[in-house]
């Protein structure tokens, strides 16, 4: 049956070539997706969901009145065609009407992530809810931490005294001066990068990183007993939680008496 043989061989060859192409193609995607970090426009979905949804149309880029947003070109080493901004050169100026977000046709920039409920039930845009990243401060190069008077980032911060505060401590080195040290608060910081732009050091000592890179996460079961608000979380917890591990299936007497301890 030469025809059947030929058909089978053709099908196998086709599948094989498709698999080969798929491996190369998939490799290119994986390589591009593993870009170290990207700062997205306000209201962007979490990175993985953002990459699935973004069609690379650039309408957010067009909408930005400050030309802060750019679509990634191949040499930018970011997922190609997706919008991003570089705070040191062009930060986000936190427009009140957030023109870039409603411009998005796909929902990759999600209005609900930058909206708050107001009394009549209508959601209202609030740019201060944006979580584009988190400003991180390098105390070793920040001149304010050495006792030099600088509050460039503090003054530049659109959420002054909320996202960046200045902590007053004694300068032990001189013994008679103060240190006015800027401190970032993740609960308020939008990641706009105006502080990074304003920083006077050669390479910015305060800079924005994506929140998932910049932040840790404590165990969900850890409750700060001294914090009344944190204590609230205990209310929804059932009376008793049983943790099961391979060891907990045995009684303590049993496993303590086992010789592999």
């Amino acid at each position: 049956m030469p025809e059947r043989r030929e058909f089978l061989l053709k099908a196998v060859r086709g599948l094989g070539l498709a698999a080969t192409g798929g491996i190369v193609w998939g490799g290119i995607i994986m390589e591009g997706r593993s870009a170290p970090f990207v700062l997205r426009p306000p209201g962007a979905l979490p990175e993985r969901q953002f990459l699935a949804a973004c069609l690379k149309c650039g309408m957010c880029v067009e909408a930005c009145p400050y030309n802060a947003l750019e679509l990634a070109r191949p040499e930018d080493e970011k997922p190609i065609g997706t919008p991003y901004f570089v705070p040191r050169t062009n930060p986000c100026y936190l427009c009140k009407d957030i023109p870039c977000v409603p411009a998005c046709p796909t929902g990759a920039l999600d209005k609900t992530l930058v909206s708050e409920e107001v009394e009549n039930g209508e959601p209202r845009l609030n740019i201060n809810l944006a979580k584009m990243g988190l400003a991180v401060l390098d105390r070793e190069t920040c001149i304010a931490y050495s006792g030099i008077q600088c509050d460039a980032c503090y003054r530049a911060c659109p959420l002054i005294d909320k996202a960046i505060t200045v902590e007053y401590t004694r300068n032990e080195r001189t013994g008679k001066h103060a240190i006015l040290a800027p401190v970032v608060h993740s609960i308020a910081c939008t990641g706009c990068g105006l502080c990074e732009k304003a920083c006077v050091t050669h390479k910015a000592s305060i800079f924005v990183l994506p929140r998932e890179i910049a932040m840790g996460k404590s165990s969900e079961r850890y409750i700060k007993g001294w914090d009344a608000r944190d204590e609230e979380r205990l209310r929804d917890v059932p009376e008793e939680i049983t943790t099961r591990t391979p060891r907990s299936s045995k009684s303590p007497v049993d496993y303590l008496n086992e010789d592999d301890l």
């Binding site: 969901q49 699935a52 998005c104 046709p105 796909t106 929902g107």
Partner: peptide
């Protein structure tokens, strides 16, 4: 985009 798991907005 839909195959990638995105929930497509009405506009798109």
């Amino acid at each position: 985009s839909f195959s990638a798991g995105a929930s497509i907005a009405v506009d798109a």
